[in-house]
Amino acid sequence: VTPALSVFSMVLANMVAVLGETTGHQALQALRDRMRRDPEGAQILQERPRIQLSTLDLSKLQTLPEGSFGWEYARFLDVNRVSPDTRAPTRFVDDEELAYVIQRYREVHDLLHTLLGMPTNMLGEVVVKWFEAIQTGLPMCVLGAAFGPIRLSLKVLISELIPWAIQNGRNSRCVLSLYYEQRWEQPIGALREELGITAPPIVWTGRTQSPKL
């Protein structure tokens, strides 16, 4: 990745973050209300945990049993070479609780990648954005879901992955109401079942590898 491309990616990410904060007030209120109605979500709103390197014990997660949610998440970070500290802080939401909701949404993004079995390449990001768009209604997710496929002419995206993401986004429990930090040892299959997320129709074993049909 060239320095110019890295700078462009950072600028683009900041622009998307600003868009989400300045145009998604009603969606944020709806998300906050859904969390309040869920006992686990209400606890999250009260305690406001953060998902950052300073709050995670990645070495411990790596020693958990293979197939546990924490082990899968640590593997996802390692394979895709991503860090939980890359999420932009909330800057343009005045309401303190709503500001936390959008911060929480950003910080669970990689956890959703893990749960959905999606890599961090363009195709994987589009699939996650479709899921997030249905789940949250946030404008930035809707735009990403709508315009992302323009750059991808993959038949499998249209015929299998997007319909799967939409169905799971509709049927699953509110993903912001899950206290992920208390679920690291839970088998990822059991966690998916609890949330109502079905296994992905296509499986990746690494970031640069082709999907297995």
Rank of each mutant, 00 (worst) to 15 (best):
G148C: 12
G148L: 10
T136M: 03
G67P: 05
I102L: 15
K60Q: 15
A165P: 00
R37S: 15
D95A: 06
K155Q: 04
I158A: 10
V82E: 00
P119S: 10
L77V: 03
A133D: 12
G117P: 13
H113N: 11
L111E: 00
S54D: 15
S59P: 03
L19P: 04
I202H: 10
R192M: 05
S172M: 07
V126Y: 07
S159M: 07
G148P: 09
E96K: 14
L195I: 14
A133N: 15
L31E: 13
R91S: 08
T86P: 01
A165H: 01
L138F: 12
T23Q: 11
Q209N: 11
Y100F: 15
P211D: 06
D38W: 08
Y179R: 10
F92P: 06
G137P: 03
Q135R: 07
E194S: 11
T208R: 12
G206Y: 04
E21N: 13
E47S: 13
V93S: 05
R81Y: 01
I188P: 00
L178Q: 11
L98S: 03
F8Q: 12
A199Q: 12
I134E: 05
A27M: 02
T114N: 01
V79K: 12
T86I: 09
V127L: 13
T198P: 04
E193T: 08
L116A: 12
P163E: 03
Y180N: 06
S153M: 08
F131W: 15
Q62A: 14
E21C: 09
G117I: 13
E40K: 05
F69P: 00
K129F: 02
S68F: 01
R151C: 09
E160I: 03
L191D: 09
T22S: 07
T208E: 08
V79T: 12
Q29F: 10
I162P: 00
I134F: 03
G144I: 09
E97Q: 15
E181L: 07
E125K: 12
K129S: 12
E107Q: 15
R170W: 09
R87T: 05
G20A: 00
S68Y: 00
D85G: 04
R32H: 15
A145T: 01
D110V: 10
V18K: 13
I166M: 02
F76L: 14
V18P: 03
G124Y: 06
I134Q: 03
P187S: 06
V128E: 04
R50N: 09
P149D: 07
Y105N: 04
I150D: 06
P65N: 08
S159L: 07
L152G: 03
T22A: 05
L157N: 05
R170V: 07
C141A: 15
T114G: 02
S177N: 06
G20E: 00
V126L: 09
I44A: 02
E160F: 02
A88Y: 06
H113R: 13
A17I: 06
L64V: 08
K212Q: 11
L19G: 09
E47N: 13
M118H: 08
P187F: 01
W71E: 11
I150S: 06
R32P: 01
E193A: 15
E194P: 04
L111K: 01
V93T: 04
E181G: 14
I102C: 05
I166L: 01
A199P: 07
F8V: 09
S6N: 10
I202Y: 04
L161P: 00
P49F: 01
V142K: 10
P139M: 12
L45Q: 04
